[in-house]
Design a protein around this nucleic acid. Structure first.
Lengths: 190, 190
DNA sequence: TTTCAAAACGAACGGTGTTTGTTTTGAATG
DNA sequence: CATTCAAAACAAACACCGTTCGTTTTGAAA
């Protein structure tokens, strides 16, 4: 059967994503994945140098999905409402794709891929439109940290037993107020 | 040699913590750990039912350390300054114990241990003194999410290539401003 | 028709967490 | 003092993991 390849990197990636989202990270082994593709584990190494490369590809895919969700949520809204919509879209994404979100934020190796940069630029734009300063790295960092922190803590169940009761909106509005007052300071200075 | 135990759960835990902090999570295998204690892997199972239990103990230890750091940073300060000091202590902890911090926030199983509850109560108290409302779950969730998110993103290098330039203080102050205005609303109501 | 490079594979290596059954031990008991 | 006995450490093995090597199979190109 070999020569006209029985599979390709994209098919493998799709199968890996489906397996990860359905059965979790422990089920995503090279043997399991190969079996799902009706082949044997060593064959996968013709398309990805190792498992880490496959996981990197999964992270990129996740970044693309999240970036698309943020961009979609940002359409035709005033800046502050865009920030709210984007925040909720982010939370929704993390809840809908928990294992993928875990992988995206896993400690091991965070590459500055094109997808990650594009995601970061989207955040910069959303936040910049609120603070009034384009490329507002500091505020964007804060916004992004808050979103990721909430998603991460919610998923690992680290909030009190009562759960994150209303905490998401409170913090988001606090950031918005803080950013807006920060904007006023900038405006008043010159 | 057996009977008067050659080791005990606490010694194992100490060795595991040292090994984790020095050589990272991949080095923390049962065989490695046993070798460091001059024994063989199966012996460890007399003291911990499995590796997950050992990791849970490590998480608890981490929570204790972080809680102690927050409490120490909170002494003899006015509420808002306590919040700043605690935030910086949290960031310092994550930087000083990256692998332990990773493990504490790892996806797998988050137990509501005594240590975790105590840590959560410390946060509740810090935040409550700023918002003026004790047991302010919502604001505490937001504060905690922001801190963890920043530490997590910094560690995984997900900020832009310029790094989190000044982002930590900006977001922290924004939250404080937001919380304070929230407090004013509460105060004006009755 | 023959060649040949690419893809899939069989087998194996070293590593992991874990289980089972055995051996060693020394404090307690008679 | 001698014996008992439960607890601790261990040797061996199992199933799985990611990965590598060398071989076989293939079908398009020459």
């Amino acid at each position: 059967m070999p020569f006209p390849a029985k599979t390709d990197p994209e098919s493998i990636l799709n199968a890996a994503l489906e397996m990860l989202e359905r059965d979790g990270p422990e089920a995503l082994s090279m043997r399991n994945l190969a079996t799902a593709l009706e082949m044997k584990a060593p064959s996968l190494y013709r398309h990805y140098p190792d498992k880490a490369a496959l996981e990197t590809a999964l992270k990129m895919r996740g970044s693309e999905m999240l970036q698309a969700a943020l961009e979609k949520a940002s359409l035709n809204q005033e800046p502050i409402e865009v920030m709210r919509k984007a925040a909720n879209a982010s939370l929704k994404f993390a809840r809908a794709h928990p294992y993928l979100y875990d992988l995206m934020n896993a400690p091991g190796g965070a590459p500055s891929t094109g997808a990650a940069k594009k995601l970061w630029n989207t955040i910069l734009e959303i936040v910049g439109n609120v603070t009034g300063k384009p490329d507002d790295t500091a505020a964007s960092v804060a916004f992004w940290a808050y979103l990721h922190g909430f998603c991460s803590l919610e998923r690992t169940g680290q909030f009190g037993k009562s759960g994150p009761k209303g905490g998401f909106e409170i913090g988001l509005e606090a950031l918005i107020i803080g950013f807006s007052s920060h904007q006023k300071q900038r405006k008043l200075k010159p």
